[in-house]
C-alpha cells in the first residue's frame, strides 16, 4: 500500500512540473482532470452497478452555469464560479436523480441518456439564451480579486485543478470507506439485503447521484474557464459515452482510476491526432480495445497489481 501511495505522490509531482517541462501539455491535462472529475462521478454510480449514459449533461450544466454567472451576473471570481457551478449542478442532479434512481439496469442507462439529450437539445435550440450551437464565450475569470492574463490564469487554474484532484481523491477514499460508501457497493451486490438492513436504497442512490452530478459539474466549470468557450456538444451523448469509457478504462476499483483513465485517454488522443489526422479515430479505438482485452481491471488494476507484486517481492526479500 505504501508503494502505491509513493507511486501516486511521484505521479502527482510529475504532473506539477508539467507547466514548466511541457507547456503544451498543461491545457490537455487541465481538461483531462476536468473530465476526470466527471468520470469519478460516473465511476461512483458504476460501483452501484448503474451505468449513466447521460453524465455529460451535468458536465455541460457546470460549464454553462460558470458561463452564465460570468456573463450575466458580473461575478467573475474563479473560486466563486467553481463553488456555485458545483452547487447548481448538485441541485439539478438531486432533482433529476429523485426520478431516475428508481430505475435500474438498462432503464437507468436509457433514461439518463434521454434526459441528457433533452438537455442537449435545449442548449442548442434556446438560441437567445445559450447562443445555440455557436455557444457562449467565457471571459477570463479573476482569481481572488486579481486580474490575470489568460496565460497566467491558465497556470493558476492548472494548479487549482491539481489541488482539487488531490482533495477529491482524498475525500473519495474516505467516502468509499464510510458506511454510505459501502452501501453504494451493496446496491450492486445485494440490494434486497440492504433494504432488509434498514437502509433505503433510494436515499443512498440519490445521495450518490447528487455527488456524482456535482463532481461532473465541477469538472464542467473547470473545462469552461479553461477552454474559454462553452458549446452544447459538451452535453452530447458521445461525451457521456466517453465518460463511461474513461471510468471503465481507468478502473473503478479506486478514486484514482478515473483520473488515470482520463489523463491516459487525453494523452493518447493528443498523440494520435498529432501522428495521423486521418486515422486518429482508429488509433484511439485500437488502444481502447487493447486495454479492455488485456486489462479487465482497467489501468488502475495494472497499477495496484504491480504495486502488490513489488511489495510481495520485498516481503519475500525480508523473509529470506
Amino acid at each position: 500500500m505504501k508503494i502505491l501511495y509513493a507511486l501516486f505522490a511521484a505521479a502527482f509531482a510529475a504532473l506539477a512540473i508539467v507547466p514548466f517541462a511541457a507547456p503544451w501539455l498543461q491545457f490537455v491535462l487541465t481538461i483531462a482532470i476536468a473530465k476526470g472529475f466527471a468520470a469519478v462521478g460516473v465511476a461512483l454510480l458504476l460501483r452501484a452497478g448503474l451505468i449513466s449514459i447521460g453524465h455529460a449533461m451535468f458536465y455541460a450544466a457546470g460549464a454553462y452555469t460558470a458561463a452564465f454567472i460570468v456573463l450575466r451576473s458580473g461575478i467573475s471570481d474563479l473560486f466563486v464560479l467553481l463553488i456555485a457551478s458545483t452547487l447548481v449542478t448538485a441541485v439539478i442532479g438531486a432533482l433529476v436523480g429523485a426520478y431516475l434512481v428508481r430505475y435500474r439496469a438498462i432503464f437507468f442507462a436509457m433514461l439518463n441518456l434521454a434526459v441528457s439529450m433533452v438537455f442537449f437539445a435545449l442548449l442548442s435550440k434556446l438560441y437567445g439564451i445559450t447562443g445555440g450551437t455557436d455557444g457562449l464565450r467565457v471571459p477570463v475569470p479573476t482569481v481572488l480579486g486579481m486580474t490575470l492574463t489568460k496565460a497566467g490564469f491558465d497556470i493558476v487554474l492548472f494548479y487549482v485543478a491539481l489541488a482539487l484532484m488531490a482533495i477529491i481523491a482524498g475525500l473519495g477514499v474516505q467516502f468509499l470507506k464510510s458506511p454510505l460508501g459501502h452501501a453504494v457497493g451493496a446496491i450492486h451486490t445485494n440490494e434486497v439485503r440492504l433494504e432488509y438492513l434498514g437502509v433505503s436504497a433510494w436515499s443512498v442512490l440519490l445521495i450518490a447521484y447528487t455527488i456524482s452530478a456535482a463532481l461532473a459539474g465541477l469538472g464542467g466549470a473547470i473545462a469552461a474557464v479553461s477552454i474559454g468557450h462553452v458549446l452544447p456538444d459538451y452535453a452530447y451523448w458521445t461525451e457521456s459515452g466517453h465518460l463511461v469509457l474513461t471510468a471503465v478504462l481507468g478502473g473503478i476499483g479506486g478514486v484514482a482510476g478515473p483520473f488515470i483513465g482520463s489523463i491516459f485517454l487525453e494523452i493518447v488522443h493528443t498523440v494520435a491526432v498529432g501522428v495521423a489526422h486521418n486515422a486518429w479515430n482508429l488509433i484511439m479505438g485500437a488502444t481502447l480495445l487493447l486495454v479492455i482485452f488485456f486489462l479487465p481491471q482497467g489501468l488502475y488494476g495494472l497499477v495496484t497489481k504491480s504495486a502488490d507484486k513489488t511489495s510481495s517481492a520485498k516481503l519475500g526479500e525480508n523473509k529470506s
Partner: peptide
Amino acid sequence: GAEGVIAEYRR
C-alpha cells in the same frame, strides 16, 4: 471537438 482542436492548436 473544441477541446481537442484547442489542445492541438496550443501544441
